[in-house]
């Protein structure tokens, strides 16, 4: 098995393990929520994260097959709209959702809607878990790339994630945020246009909070 295949296999297994943990957490939460309805929002968030992990298992298998990406012309505005609705639905009253877009967001961009959607939902769910009062969704345009950005206002990325460290997944050491980040890296990198390839950017904000951007060529 090649190193790439081994790394992919390890990522898949990590996702499956995390999914099992989340099922356990969800089971207990729902039992409690049957008595205490204020736990329902938390239960919903756990189901989203569980969906993320299970969805990623399937999509990682697709990415591992050659030609697994299926780009077509999609509206980035519609995708962002779906994310915004998801964010508002999960945020409740505690967290404000803001959407920013430059004047000229293109009508079309070329990407695999399911893969990119999954990567962005991962990032959004992570932001919602960690945010204290605000999550921002935004578009960016730079040098022929379209960027989907998600910011929160609390917590921080570990340094090695920000510095684009070698894949810890190869050793099966990924969980939580790092799984989502590694998945997003793979998704971004699988989008290519001529000599250009997608990428992600992670940054810790001054005063607290994180900024995640997925750039597509």
């Amino acid at each position: 098995m090649t190193a790439e295949a081994s790394g992919m296999r390890a990522l898949i297994e990590s996702n499956a393990r995390e999914a099992a943990d989340l099922v356990g957490e969800l089971t207990l939460l729902l039992d409690h929520a049957a008595r205490e309805t204020h736990d329902l929002p938390a239960a919903r968030m756990v189901t989203r994260r569980l969906s993320d992990r299970l969805g990623q298992v399937v999509m990682l298998e697709r990415l591992a097959r050659s030609g697994g990406i299926r780009p077509d012309a999609w509206s980035p505005i519609e995708l962002m709209e779906e994310l915004e609705h998801e964010a508002v639905s999960l945020a409740g009253a505690q967290i404000g959702i803001d959407v920013r877009a430059p004047d000229l967001v293109p009508q079309f961009w070329f990407f695999d809607r399911e893969l990119v959607g999954m990567a962005l939902r991962n990032a959004l769910h992570s932001a919602l878990v960690h945010a204290s009062s605000a999550v921002t969704l935004e578009f960016r345009m730079s040098d022929g790339y379209l960027g989907f950005g998600i910011q929160d206002d609390a917590g921080s990325f570990p340094d090695e994630l920000v510095l684009n460290a070698p894949l810890r997944a190869e050793r099966g050491e990924c969980n939580g945020n790092s799984l989502g980040v590694h998945f997003a890296r793979l998704v971004a990198a699988s989008h290519a246009n001529r000599e250009r390839r997608g990428r992600i950017e992670l940054a810790n904000r001054h005063g607290g909070g994180t900024c995640f951007t997925l750039w597509l060529p």
Binding site: R48, S51, L54, E81, E82, H85, E86, S89, E114
Partner: peptide, 16 residues
């Protein structure tokens, strides 16, 4: 719609 999906995703896709 690829499973699993949310009610909101269903509504948006239907409307569009």
């Amino acid at each position: 719609l690829v499973k699993p999906f949310t009610e909101e995703a269903l509504r948006l896709r239907l409307v569009r």
